[in-house]
């Protein structure tokens, strides 16, 4: 939809309907403007990667999609963000319901200090699922999809914190999947964990896109190239000034024939 507003940025969004669209978005932390004038469409049931140097506002932008920035006092979002054509910042929209539909994985694995089972059952219980049989089934299915079931099926009662970092991250993914989100936001999910788990997470991302739209922030460009179909490159050119979306396109185009000089410089490692 409305691809013409950012057709100068991409020819990418015309193949699948957009799950999320962003128009003229600016973001402020108090007086500091972190993002300006962002326009982008996130394709449904695909993986989109956000890349760019550290501090250029990737996390900030990602957190606009589930309104996590609402929790930080003094922040302001201008512009339009829609999920399935619905303005998520419209008055009356319940951020709690939005966050069920748009799940989030953080850089630091953050399982709750409770059993593996209770971690995964947390979301369903919040939303009123009480029956043991139903919860059992959700827990197993979610852990399966998070590539963790085999490792933990005999220790479901154990504290989630007793798992390794990589397992904890997959537990967090299972916890999100348990509420059947439509979108999963992943903020550098692999930067604090072991390579085996990274592999497993990249595998499961590919499997999940049959149902889920994924946005992943990563500063590992190989990872972006491996897992994503689309890539957005962000850059804050002057310290203290807001960051912009420099280029958004199919990942293959970004990595083989970027249109913007700055993208090329970043991809080839000339800065950042």
């Amino acid at each position: 939809m409305s691809t013409d507003t950012f057709s100068h940025l991409s020819q990418a969004a015309d193949e699948r309907p957009d799950k999320i669209t962003v128009k003229d978005l600016s973001f402020h932390y108090g007086d500091f403007q972190a993002l300006t004038d962002i326009n982008v469409g996130i394709s449904s049931k695909a993986v989109t990667a956000f890349i760019g140097p550290s501090g250029c506002g990737k996390s900030t932008f990602l957190r606009c999609f589930n309104r996590m920035n609402d929790l930080i006092p003094g922040t302001r979002v201008d512009g339009l963000v829609t999920l399935d054509d619905q303005d998520i910042y419209a008055p009356g929209v319940d951020p709690v319901d939005l966050r069920r539909r748009v799940g989030m994985i953080f850089q630091q694995p953050n399982p709750f200090p409770m059993s593996i089972y209770d971690n995964v059952a947390y979301g369903p219980r919040l939303h009123g699922v009480k029956r043991k049989a139903e919860l059992d089934e959700i827990v197993e299915r979610s852990l399966e999809r998070a590539n963790l079931w085999k490792e933990v099926k005999d220790i479901l009662g154990r504290n989630g914190l007793s798992l390794s970092g990589g397992q904890q991250q997959r537990l967090c993914i299972a916890r999100v999947l348990a509420v059947e989100p439509e979108v999963m936001l992943m903020d550098e999910p692999c930067s604090a964990i072991d390579p085996t788990s990274v592999q497993k997470i990249e595998d499961l991302m590919a499997e999940l896109t049959d149902r889920i739209t994924i946005i992943i922030v990563t500063h590992n460009m190989q990872q972006a190239a491996r897992v994503s179909e689309y890539t957005a490159f962000f850059l804050q050119e002057v310290a203290g000034e807001p960051a912009v979306l420099v280029e958004f396109d199919r990942t293959t185009n970004i990595f083989t024939s970027p249109k913007d000089r700055r993208t090329e410089d970043y991809i080839t490692g000339r800065f950042g």
Partner: peptide, 20 residues
């Protein structure tokens, strides 16, 4: 991070307090 995780799961402040 624990609080963030709970809010990101769609929990309210009260649910975060008494469940986590």
């Amino acid at each position: 991070g624990i609080r963030e995780a709970s809010y990101a799961m769609g929990a309210t402040t009260w649910q975060t307090i008494y469940r986590v």
